[in-house]
């Protein structure tokens, strides 16, 4: 009897070890990873970059429209770097069109690279995004929705892995009280982007924008948060130079508002 129990024990242990081994290996899609080109982010990311065949969720840090715009630009910059090839194109599915295309061009997505798909409702927008992912002819797919349940997330993750296309899911705030990243999801990475005071200039004016980037969850890595400079004309982020007089600049903010 004890032998049977021991056998069962070893069997269970072996099964458990197998299962552990299966989930320990990160879901390695054959799509290439896209590093941010910022040392501080890349070393903390699970594979050293964004998975080119995975689902990435991006949400604004607060329900304000300024943070929402920052999250939009973060997604646009990531999509622009995925679509670095001159012939590549990006699909952007949404339900209500309030984007301003010249602003997206300044984040690295010129109009010739960007195809918009407007769905009747969010279910339709997610279905359009899934179609784009499975088609595989887009370099990246961005979808902006307010609600997405576990099933939809899982479908998008599978479609992204099948089509070797990164999925950037822009979660917009539905109500002021409900954080879109509150519930768990199947995403590879979940980002929360907010506005931060910009780099001070020696003369009156608005310097390069800064964002507070918070990686809420990632597969095979730990969450972190840091302040980065907003993406430039090609969608690249940067780290702000360490400013010795940051406190002094903040104090003299009213003087800068000339």
């Amino acid at each position: 009897m004890p032998t049977v129990a021991a056998l069962a024990e070893t069997d269970r242990a072996r099964l458990l070890a197998e299962l552990k081994a299966r989930i320990a290996v990160p879901v390695a899609s054959s799509a290439p990873l896209l590093p941010f080109g910022v040392e501080a982010i890349d070393v903390r990311l699970g594979g050293g970059g964004l998975d080119g065949g995975g689902l990435h969720e991006i949400a604004a840090a607060s329900p304000t429209l300024g943070d929402d715009a920052a999250a939009t630009l973060f997604a646009a910059g990531a999509a622009a770097r995925f679509a670095g090839d001159p012939n590549a194109s990006v699909a952007w599915t949404l339900t209500r069109f309030d984007l301003y295309a010249p602003g997206l061009e300044q984040a690295g997505l010129p109009p010739a690279k960007l195809l918009y798909c407007e769905g009747r409702d969010e279910v339709m927008a997610l279905a359009l995004a899934e179609d784009c992912l499975r088609d595989g002819s887009f370099a990246a797919v961005v979808a902006e929705v307010k609600h997405a349940d576990q099933t939809a997330m899982r479908r998008l993750q599978l479609a992204a892995a099948d089509g070797h296309t990164p999925m950037l899911l822009l979660r917009r705030w539905a109500r002021a009280a409900s954080d879109p990243l509150e519930k768990p999801s199947a995403a590879c990475t979940r980002w929360r982007i907010g506005c931060a005071p910009s780099v001070p200039l020696p003369h009156p004016g608005v310097g390069r924008s800064c964002w507070s980037v918070e990686l809420v969850r990632q597969r095979g890595g730990n969450p972190f948060s840091l302040i980065v400079e907003a993406c430039d004309g090609k969608g690249r982020l940067a780290l702000p130079a360490p400013a010795r007089d940051r406190a002094a600049a903040a104090g003299s903010a009213s003087r800068r508002a000339a």
């Binding site: 984007l99 109009p111 960007l114 195809l115 798909c117 088609d135």
Partner: peptide, 14 residues
């Protein structure tokens, strides 16, 4: 395929 799902006007560029 996208236009077939969402309609002809739903797929566009700016």
């Amino acid at each position: 395929q996208l236009a077939g799902r969402a309609g002809q006007d739903a797929v566009f560029r700016m």
